[in-house]
């Protein structure tokens, strides 16, 4: 792909001093951006420009910048992680934008993900859900020998698919109901499918769903928006499994 230059872009970016302040959109112009630049690099360039102008830089989350940690977020032009499917914001490139375009950049919007500053939101809610049951509570020794615990191939594959979730929050951010079901389903599925996690499956499903509700995430209405924005292609079939696991657990009570 040949390099091209975007001569001018208009950026409408959400600025908010801290959790308590009222935020607002600020408009910035940025010039001569290569289409090979990543979206976050483009924001870096904008921040350097702001430093030169002695203005406060824009705060945004990022870490690995290679699509594996789940730190980057951003609602770009009305879509979680921007216009591409199946990628995180750090993997998004400026070739997806046109010269002269106005790009709207907002933080994740969800009552359970309060804004900390500018584009950074607090995603501790996901950690709290994990702490409620997203683990196996036995102290294991070393790594077991290969094949000592037989697991059917399709189970292993599905568990691996669910384990791909990086906890980015795009599912809840994009869902019209702010539902965290895809995230919770991925975690419940991953463990319920494997023999080590199966033992606690009932307790886990109940505890994680209760925590998710308590934190103020909405109710899933099966629109499927989460799955189409998930950078790791977690399927809502996992939500069906979570519903099953939860029902089974409640019927056992």
């Amino acid at each position: 792909m040949s390099e091209n230059i975007l001569k001018e872009l208009t950026l409408k970016i959400w600025r908010q001093k801290d959790a308590k302040s009222k935020g607002r959109f600020e408009t910035y112009k940025i010039h001569n951006i290569s289409t090979d630049t990543s979206f976050l690099e483009m924001l870096d360039i904008l921040n350097e420009q702001l430093v030169v102008e002695s203005k406060e830089t824009i705060a945004f989350d990022h870490d690995c910048r290679e699509g594996i940690c789940g730190m980057c977020s951003l609602f770009i032009n009305g879509r979680a992680h921007g216009p591409d499917d199946e990628v995180t914001t750090c993997q998004l490139h400026m070739r997806r934008f046109k010269d002269g375009e106005t790009i709207t950049i907002e933080p994740w919007r969800s009552g359970a993900f309060p804004v900390v500053k500018d584009l950074i939101v607090d995603r501790k809610a996901f950690e709290k859900i994990l702490q409620a049951g997203g683990y196996v509570s036995v102290n294991t020794g070393g790594v077991p020998d290969a094949n000592s615990i037989p697991i059917a191939n399709d189970k292993a594959e599905e568990a691996m698919d669910a384990a791909a979730c990086i906890g980015c929050g795009a599912c809840a951010a994009t869902c019209k109901n702010s539902s965290a079901m895809l995230f919770v389903a991925a975690k419940v599925s991953q463990l319920a499918l494997l023999p080590q996690g199966k033992i606690e499956a009932a307790r886990r499903a109940k505890a994680m769903v209760a925590k998710m509700d308590e934190l103020g995430f909405g109710n899933c209405t099966n629109t499927g928006a989460c799955e189409s924005e998930c950078p790791k292609q977690i399927s809502i079939s996992h939500i069906a499994r979570l519903n099953r696991e939860f029902l089974k657990a409640k019927l056992q009570d």
């Binding site: 409408k12 032009n77 709207t104 969800s110 009552g111 019209k176 909405g218």
Partner: peptide
């Protein structure tokens, strides 16, 4: 579900995904 998102998005392209 409406309460779960007290501050909405200025721009939201939901038709792309549901």
């Amino acid at each position: 579900n409406m309460k779960a998102r007290p501050v909405g998005y200025a721009r939201s392209e939901q038709s792309n995904n549901a």
